[in-house]
Design a protein around this nucleic acid. Sequence first.
DNA 1: GGCTGCATGTAAGTCGTTACATGATTTA
DNA 2: TAAATCATGTAACGACTTACATGCAGCC
Lengths: 201, 201
Amino acid sequence: MARRGETIELAVLGLLHEGPMHGYELRKRLNLMLGWGRLLSYGSLYPALKKMLRGNLIEEVAAPAGPVSRRQRIVYQVTDKGTEEFSRLMSEVGPAAWEDDNFDIRFRFFSSTDMEIRLRVLEGRRSRLQERLDRVQRELAMTQKEVDRYAAELQRHGVESVEREVRWLSDLINAERGAQGHSVAKPIPPTQTPTSPSTSQ
Amino acid sequence: MARRGETIELAVLGLLHEGPMHGYELRKRLNLMLGWGRLLSYGSLYPALKKMLRGNLIEEVAAPAGPVSRRQRIVYQVTDKGTEEFSRLMSEVGPAAWEDDNFDIRFRFFSSTDMEIRLRVLEGRRSRLQERLDRVQRELAMTQKEVDRYAAELQRHGVESVEREVRWLSDLINAERGAQGHSVAKPIPPTQTPTSPSTSQ
DNA sequence: GGCTGCATGTAAGTCGTTACATGATTTA
DNA sequence: TAAATCATGTAACGACTTACATGCAGCC
């Protein structure tokens, strides 16, 4: 996973750009976005917030809006330095940016960057997946002799999933390219129903 | 990720049941199977092998087959105790078993267990994914007011991917159920082309 | 003769989880 | 008033990665 520390920082900065928030709330949102699996623990989040406070990336909000409900809680907001750092991190389009978690976070905050960056991240991600696919299929061809049926099925399913993801990325890339001109708005055509009505348990 | 240590142990034991191997080879295969992302490093594998040696789960093979090419390498094979441990781990059908990596490994070695276990793992995995889906969609309904287009697209794609996986699991479960009688063979109907011809970069 | 790939290992450090500890507030 | 949830934090621990160190073997 490498360097999720930076991932958390980026995510926190991004969320706080959507409005001041306290730690508990941040954790909930964080788990919702990178939540397709592991949960982020307090033991991770709070130290990270402390660190960001020390680095002046975020600061505590003076007066909490409501005069009632004076619960013990610390609301944070980004500082100017934090905004700078956020932009810097978002424009870092190296290999680290196409890693699973890092990619998701960047994508989530794509509205905050311009099209050039978006395209580079999207394309980088796509070629990384493509490489994975090629590598696996190459090695698969070598080993394929006596394959276990379950092993084979797992491979098949894995390859298929990645292929779908590649197509998804290609669609997004085309959408970005098609939106030439306005470099920060409406890049995504309605791909499907906004609220999927399936998942009837 | 929690407890990948056990995952590695299980994977190594499983692979060694398919024949003796040395560390380097193990790593290659391991990366191929759980390789949809992070690579397992030597700093992880070798200490794990040492630990398994100490625990008498595996042992060094005396004479390497070929009389030529006497390269420095240590070939391992499972002991009886290792086989026992492998069976034990494979029949552990708790929440840990439906975690991403753990599930993949177990599935990969499904041929080594009986149908009862397979079904429990498959069903556990499915209901875990279902829960994730429900939780996200419930919370999504609450937050959905002013959603960022990219954030929305990410959610949509995520939900769709998990839904596909649920369908995949359901198919597998039906296949297992349909194969009543022979509890260890031919559970999977040919779902598609064995070697997918796509992926023309 | 040098580069690349095979092969094994260790040490240090990072990152994050688990478990613990505490307490306020809302709801049944 | 008890239980659930909100809310913040720390200490200990574990797992894995990075970087380092070493050396053989095959190929150009």
